[in-house]
Structures are given as C-alpha cells and as structure tokens.
Design a protein around this nucleic acid. Sequence first.
DNA 1: CCCCGGGCATGACATTTGTCCTGCCCGGGT
DNA 2: ACCCGGGCAGGACAAATGTCATGCCCGGGG
Lengths: 201, 201
Amino acid sequence: MIRVLLAEDQGMMRGALALLLGMEEDIEVVAQVAAGDEIVPAALTARPDVALLDIELPGRSGLDAAADLRVRCPGCRVLILTTFGRPGYLRRAMEAGAAGFLVKDGPVEELAAAVRRVLAGEKVIDPALAAAALGAGPNPLTARERDVLNAAADGATVADVAARVSLSESTVRNHLSSVIGKTGTRNRMEALRAARRQGWL
Amino acid sequence: MIRVLLAEDQGMMRGALALLLGMEEDIEVVAQVAAGDEIVPAALTARPDVALLDIELPGRSGLDAAADLRVRCPGCRVLILTTFGRPGYLRRAMEAGAAGFLVKDGPVEELAAAVRRVLAGEKVIDPALAAAALGAGPNPLTARERDVLNAAADGATVADVAARVSLSESTVRNHLSSVIGKTGTRNRMEALRAARRQGWL
DNA sequence: CCCCGGGCATGACATTTGTCCTGCCCGGGT
DNA sequence: ACCCGGGCAGGACAAATGTCATGCCCGGGG
C-alpha cells in the first residue's frame, strides 16, 4: 500500500484527486491538507511514502515545504503537482529534492503512474519542460530585487514599496530598474509578468 | 440518465471530474471539451441535459458560451463552475441564463448534487456570494473602458494600447484615468486588480 | 427641442517612473 | 592588498503617466 499525502488548496480538485487515488488498489490517501504550513506537521504524523504537493498554496509555498520534508521526513518522496510549468519552478523543485514534477494539464492517468514511478526511485519529469528549465538558466534576480518586485506586485507606488521593505525610494527605484534591465522589459509591469512566467517570483 | 457536458481546460481537473460524475449511477458525461469555442458545437451534437462550464477558458469565455447555449440549445441547463467567486461573474452568469454557479472550493460532493438540483429546475447559488453580487452593484465600466484596460493589462505603454485599440494616445489616457477614478485606485495596475477582483474584466 | 452620457480628441500641467552616475559600506575571493 | 558583486542612497534628468479643462459628435430620452 502506497501512503500518499495530498496538499492542494482547491477543495474540488483535492477531493477529486483523493477519490481517484483512493480508487487504485495499491494507493491510500493518508492525509489531505489545504495550506502549505500544514504539510510538514501532517507528514510527521501520517508518515506518507509520497507527498503530492501543489506549489501555490496559502500560508507557505509547496516548494519550501518540500525542502523541509527532505530533512524532517526523509524517506518521504516529494511529487510536485502544479498548474504552471514554469522553468524556475522545476529548477527550484529539483533543488528542493523533489522526485517528480507534474503539471495539471495532461491526463489523470499520469497521476497514479507517477506516484508509483516516484516510489520506485525514478525521477518523473516532462522532458520538454526539463529542456526549457535547463535552457533558461538560473534566476538572475537577487533576493532584494525579488523582495522589491513582490512588494510592487499589487500596483504599489515607489513610496509604498519603500515603506514596506524599509528602503529609501532611491534604492527601490534602483532595484526596480535593475530587474527591468535583467528581464529585458520596459516597465515594472512587464518585468513582473516576465519574472512570473519564468518562475522567478 | 442525466447527460452532462464538461468544459474545463485543466486536463487533470477535467479528467477527474468526468470520472467522478461518471461514477454516479444517474449521471453520464457525454462530452468533454477543453476550449470555450468547442462548447456550442459539442452541445449541438451531444445534446446534454446539463452543461458544466468553467469561465476562464482558452478561445472563448464560458459565460459567452452560456449565453449562446440559451438560444442554440434550449432545454440545456447551464451550471457554471469556476475558481473565482467574483461578484461580476455571478451577475453575468445569471444574465446569461445560467441555472447555477459553483466555486471550485467546497467539497466534491456538492457537484453531483448541484447537477441534479439544476436539472430539477432549482437555481444553485451560494447565498453569501449572491449577497455580495447584489451588494456590489453593476459593472460601472463602459465597453470602451474595458477594452482599453484589457489592452493595458500586460504592461503595455499608452502608445501600445492606442495602437491596439486604434485610438489616440490622449483618448487612451482619458479612458484609463476614468477607470482609475471609477475603481477608486491610484494607477492602472491597481485599477486592473480591482476590476479583476470584481469580475468586471 | 434640449439635455445628457458616451466616445473621441487636444493641450497643459504635475507627478511618477525609469535611467544613469556617483558614492559608501561590506564580505568573499584571488 | 586588491577587486568585485551586492546592498544602500542621493541627485539629476528624460520619459511615461495621470489629471483636468475644453471641445466636438452622436443617439436616446424627457
């Protein structure tokens, strides 16, 4: 019996996946969580063999939780299941020690198969996605630049961002100008979209 | 046997829902589509009793398709199934003649139940959402303002937008200024977020 | 008939944004 | 000891953005 933990915020999706997986003879869903910060605690009590994690979750990113599971719950394989096949997401997933990376497109049949393959020690990665991730190179943004970009993501003005991250307005503008340069875009809005598309968040 | 058409772009979600609904004794999924512009053709050949439609679909909005089904396929009830419980979406769904409006949170069990209730002639709407939709009032944006805002949604400059919608730059700025005013925001980015949140798109 | 809202357009203006240059501090490599 | 990348900040400048007043045209309603 393969013990599976399921982390997914959309109730209907989570319920449907749980039912589907539960229908397989050799799979058992031993825990379901809807938030990122519930993943590690649930894994510690439920002791799953495979953790099926969404990335965009309330509370905490599935990728962060994956990195934690690596040390807090060794022997528990991580399979990332996400809407977006962003190169940066795949890269971060691999760095976090994930054993597989699935996108929510693609047929349902893939899911149970991927769970079994991951448990068998295989890596499960879409080859096309892998190529894209390798070709795109690593995240060129510095931590500070990501902070500032995130703080500006909701349309905040320079002054707002400066207040949020406790920086001078000049510095904020310098950082923003820098990410605009690195993304090859013309303004923060385009830069934001570009960074998101790459999974640089 | 209730004949159901399923329109949902995410492969895994679509597959999972189809399997779940198919498991009900009285429900049969007679068509599955992944794009908005496939809905009406599929409905015309498959003759479903209930059309379960996502809103955000490639090709065409599920809401537009719903309005079309009203005339092209009368007797076919529409049940909207969407990620976002935006007031404006619900309002538009009702105006398009939908019989129900479900959000993808909430338990899976709701789904089959909603299909049956819709077929029985009931309206299926979350009361809290209905209250929000009524309280929010109608969409204050004019058609042109929506066009311009959409054209600016990807970070395009005023010049870009003007070219896209064939307007003078001055007019574009006037329209943008107007939506900023109507949304009570400070710039186009905030205005965009506000409009999206309301479902005014 | 007149008024009003909507679309379109200009020009003027203040503010914000993005760029560039300079400078300082720090820590890690060579 | 030296350099370099990163973070931080200031100033100066050009370009983009947002506001406002004005004007014109149209169609629908009172």
